[in-house]
Write a protein that binds this DNA or RNA. Sequence first.
RNA 1: AGAGAGUUGGGUGAGUGGCUUAAACCAGCAGUUUGCUAAACUGUCGUACGUGUCAAAGCGUACCGGGGGUUCGAAUCCCCCACUCUCUACCA
Length: 424
Amino acid sequence: MLQVNFIRENFEKAVLGLKKRNFAGAEAALNQLVQLDDARKNIQLESDQLQAESNAISKTIGKLMQSGQIEEAERVKSRTSEIKSQVKALEDHYARQENELVQLLYTIPNIPHETVVPGFGAEDNEVVHSHGTIPELTPSNNLPHWELIKKYDIIDFELGVKIAGAGFPVYKGKGARLQRGLVNFFLDEATKAGYTEIQPPILVNEDSGYGTGQLPDKEGQMYFCNEDGLYLIPTAEVPITNLYRNEILQAADLPVKNVGFTPCFRREAGSWGAHVRGLNRLHQFDKVEIVHISHPDNSYEALEQMSDYVQGLLQKLELPYRVLRLCGGDMGFTSALTYDMEVFSAAQERWLEVSSVSNFETYQATRLKLRFKEDKKTILAHTLNGSALALPRIVAAILENNQQEGGIKIPQVLIPYLGFEWIN
RNA sequence: AGAGAGUUGGGUGAGUGGCUUAAACCAGCAGUUUGCUAAACUGUCGUACGUGUCAAAGCGUACCGGGGGUUCGAAUCCCCCACUCUCUACCA
């Protein structure tokens, strides 16, 4: 969430930023925010003063009791009970006021970075880079991946339906080994690039959901274990970033660079329709995620570094891709700047999003209370994350783009991980 | 899952209702001494919100696992919850 002080000091900038996101009533909401915060301060001031008085009286009573002036002590007590009820009323009022403030803050998305263009949806995103050539498939070898997986019997959706439901594929034989090989490849590459590997829990509590911004509002997108109050993670971003909830790091600890592999679970309520066949959209999928905690001064360098890193993976996998800088209207709620990486899937003739790399600046850190110490000052850190990478669409593109007469040719870099060169 | 014992600052650890404004030690930081290192000594050393200010210092309030209660006053007493350790039971 945003910080009220930031809004006070950058009111116009904040309004303009929210307009890029087509956030209706930005000015009114921000004005209300400042008013609620003013009211909160006034109540606190009054309450603090009364409590200071009460504390002083209590000390006096203590001294009177010790020196045996019981009657005098009793007389002073009457004033404190008066204060007590006033303080109680003020505290209740304060709690209501603060709650209203926080609820409003939860509804306001992050302010986009200055380079983010206004826009309404995917059609307004900017292509900032592209790489590789789009493969030309021959008429006899241009099957979409959902046909290829049947042809070679490597992924079975019907079996998944039998044991779980739609959107829970079963990977078999070389299909399973391809998954495992990709995960190992991604983790090894990340380790080489200086990331620390983390294996986090894949169920998280409510506080963690709030920490990274999935809650409130996105509860409908997460699977929830009612008995235990735990959510299945939609991405490793949630547990790995929440590792640092309520922490104060040292400036020398930065940047923190973690990587983790987890399955991800998404209910995807209401998002089924065209273009979701096969591996394009699933309830459960595997993903390797990179998470940075950065000094505010160089978080945008870190973002570029992460973008370059992800592009390097795609190059090694020999997949044609493009990089989009998302417009205000298409960016996630908590992000200030997001790059999407899309690979071209030759048989579907579509670009598929395989990674999303974002800088959240202090939006997550404010909720997480994630700070660091520098020169005796406590400063909010910047958080960033990105997929490196999400498996299903990578698999879809590898299958479609590399299909030949003799089967599907495995990219060179994966062969040591798989122990076979062809799926046939 | 049952029984018992615990949870205090970065760490160790004292503290059973009012000189506690959380002792002491260690670590950290700054300084003094010193040819260098070490040691010694002195000082400093939490977080949040508010107030104040150009900025700060300072001041106020809250915080001793989390939440609630008793009391003029709670680290201390009571209740609920979480976690840790030991034993028992169970288990991949």
